[in-house]
Amino acid sequence: MPKIVFEDKHYQSEVGESVLDCLIRHNVSVNYSCKSGVCQSCMMVAVEGEPTPGSQLGIRETLKRQDHFLICACVPETDMLVAVPDSIGSTFEARVISLDKLAEDVVRLRLVRPENYDYLPGQFINLTNSEGVSRSYSLASVPELDDFLELQIRRVPNGRVSGWVADTVEVGQVVTISQPSGQCSYMPGREDQPLLLVGTGTGLAPLMGIVRDALRQGHHGPIHLYHGSSKAEGLYLVAELTDLEEANDAFYYQPCVSRGELTETSQKKLRSGRAADLALQDFANMDGWRVYLCGREDMVKSLQKKVFLAGASMQDIFADPFVFSERVSSEKVDSEKVDSAKVIQKVDAT
C-alpha cells in the first residue's frame, strides 16, 4: 500500500483509505471538516505523487495546476509527499536587471528569472532585504512573454524593504526571492467570459500580468481593466496600457482618479471617481463574469462582496488584498510576514 509522507514522517496507508483517514489514524493533527470533498478545509499540496482526479473536483483551476487536492477525497494510488499549502519555502537568488521610476513613489524592479523558476502571472513572491526582512510583491511579468521577473514596488514611509529597493539596490546586485505563491491568476477555458480587473496603486502589477496572459492565451471575451489612484500622478504605465488597448480589440483600459478635479491638461482617457465605483456603475450585472481584485484591502474586500451580490460566482472572483505593514505596529510586522505565506492573504510594501 502507498506511503504518505507529511512533515518528514512516513505513514503507511491501508486498503481504500484516504490520505486524511491515514493521517487521522496515525494521530496526525490536520485541518478537516466535512470529510466528503466539499468544504475544502483539508486541502493540501501533492509535492510528490499524483492526486486522484476525484480529489480535485470543485477546486479552483489555479490551485489544481499547483497540485492542490483534498486529502479526504484521495485514496492514493502511489506514494505521496504532501504538504500544507505554502509551507514549502525555498529561496532563489536573482540578479537585478533594471530599476526604473514609474511614478512618484513606484519603482519597477526587473530581475533575471532564475532557472526552473515557474510561476503564474498574478502570483506574488517574497523579496528579502539585506537585513533578512521580507515583504511580498506581485509579479507583473508573464513567463511565456518575458525572460525577466518584474515587480512594481511602492515606496512606503519608513518601508524596510521598499526603502531598501529605492535607496540601496543597484543594477547587477543579487537579491533573494521566494518561490511564487497565490492563486490570483488567469486560467484558460471559457475564453468568451467577460473579465473585470480592478486594481488600486501597485495592485496594477498582478493585473498587468493577468491581462497579458489572458490575451496571450487567446481570451476573446471583453477584458476590462480599471486602475485607480488618488491622484493622476499616481497612475503609471498609462501609455503602455493604452498601446495594449489599441492593439487588442477585446481589451479596455480605464485609468481612474479618485480625488481632485481633472484638469484640462489631464489625459482624455482619465475618469474621475474611484475605480471600484466606476466599474460597478458601468457593469451592474456581473452574472457570468470573472473578476480579479488587487490592491488596498478595504477596497478589495468591499468590492468582492459587491461583485458577488451583483451576480458573479464566488468561484470566479479572485481577490488579492494588500496589507500594508505601515499600518501595524513594529512588533506586529513579523506576524504580518507570516500572513504573507497564506495563499490569499498578502503583505505588500515596506
Binding site: S33, C34, K35, S36, V38, C39, Q40, S41, K301, Q304, K305, F308, M314, I317, A319, I344
Partner: peptide, 24 residues
Amino acid sequence: VDMEKQVAKQKGFLTMAFGGPNNY
C-alpha cells in the same frame, strides 16, 4: 468575514443540511 472561508463553511453546512456526509 473572509468570503472564501465563508463559502467553504457554507458548503459544509449545505452538505450537512442536504443529509450528506459530515462530522459536525
